[in-house]
Design a protein around this nucleic acid. Sequence first.
RNA 1: GGAGAGGUGGCUGAGUGGCUGAAAGCGGCACCCUGCUAAGGUGUUAUACUCGUAAGGGUAUCGGGGGUUCGAAUCCCUUCCUCUCCGCCA
Length: 423
Amino acid sequence: MLQVAYLREHKEDVIARLAVKNFDAKSIIEELILLDEKRRQTQAEHDDTLAESNKLSKEIGMLYKSGNSEEANAKKALTAELKEKSKQLNQLLSDTQDSLHEKLVQIPNIPHDSVPAGNSDEDNKVISQEGEFPDLGNHAKPHWELVAEKNIIDFELGVKITGAGFPVYRGKGAKLQRALINYFLDKNIDAGYEEVMPPHMVNEASGFGTGQLPDKEGQMYHVTEDNLYLIPTAEVPVTNIFRNVILKKEDLPIKCTAYTPCFRREAGSYGKDVRGLNRLHQFDKIEIVQIQHPDESYKTLDEMVAHVASILRELKLPFRILQLCGGDISFTSSLTYDFEVYSAAQEKWLEVSSVSNFESYQTNRLKLRYRDEDKKTKLCHSLNGSSLALPRVLAAIIENYQGADGIHIPEVLIPYCGFDKIE
RNA sequence: GGAGAGGUGGCUGAGUGGCUGAAAGCGGCACCCUGCUAAGGUGUUAUACUCGUAAGGGUAUCGGGGGUUCGAAUCCCUUCCUCUCCGCCA
């Protein structure tokens, strides 16, 4: 959520920059500014009315104390009018605030200056690419065939137990899954992130805090009985640790990492790129989250990108880094880099990580602030990224590391697995 | 699930209708004093909105919402949450 004061002061600039996200902000911002003026004016009037009424009440109290009840009663009569007036103003004020808020949450985050214009993922900018594509000859198999052959992931069984998109990992498949989780966590911890194990369900306030609610409500599994949501990413519970918190400047940056399963309904995304591990309703992901000083957040973003790259490099998977264009970047993000690994058997790039700077868009919702030298509270910047999402990394490993004698395990994972091959 | 208790500032915890934005203690910060370590003294210390160049002023906030009253942390209603005991259970 953007700050009204900022919109007021940088109206034209904001409109121009939101156009990069293909969002026409002109009319909504103008409405917002008008609403804000109305809000302030109403509040001033309301405050004055209450001030007068408070003053009168005090006087009445004093008069009673001094035994002058006659004059007190006379003054009481005056308060009725004030009371009625403040009631109306209060109603007007809260109505105005509600519509202000309703409009405000409809405006996406302002993209960073460097974000290229574009309409879809085809317009994303390739920043870098590294790693060799493996030569699999012409007997390369996609991972969904390989996992069935080796009996390490059973999609059918998941359908029986739960439904499509809930695979069952078994044997060495399960162990490899666990190895990846531990390996990723260890890498993140080594890079200075504190590991946290958060709840896998969150309440409404948390969903709002990171921006899943209200706009992405349909993407989350909702436990209606208790009004809780299954987390779509660890970003939600982890970032919400800091909801309503005022940090000391020297506490920044705060670096957290968490492994959690992620649950996504993926409503409306049937049919495309959904085979095998490519798109699931439940998957495992290790997330990194940083809370940073506004002056440092882009440096931190670069650092996070470099960190994720180092992991993919160690896994010896060919990958590329994309800067998302205005049309593909998320509603809440200012700048996002996606990581894609190359899946040699499917002959396509699979997204495995998304690293974003949200600037103060989330922290404004979360009321996550730090105290500056001037003793004033200011909004922190929040950042997060996947480090990494498992299924597509797993798919790429299975496909890229396939050989005549089985699936080989990347060297760095062997100590975590306890085996070097899946036959 | 049944019964009960309770939600007050960074924390502990007082406060049953007006001078209480809130005692006291702890913690934090600043300064002073003290020849080590330690202790002591004084002051200060919530957040948001809003008006103001500023100094400073106004308003709101004692879980949330509503009500009674000239006036509510305090009384009433409602809702959410937490804790304790019992039951069930990993």
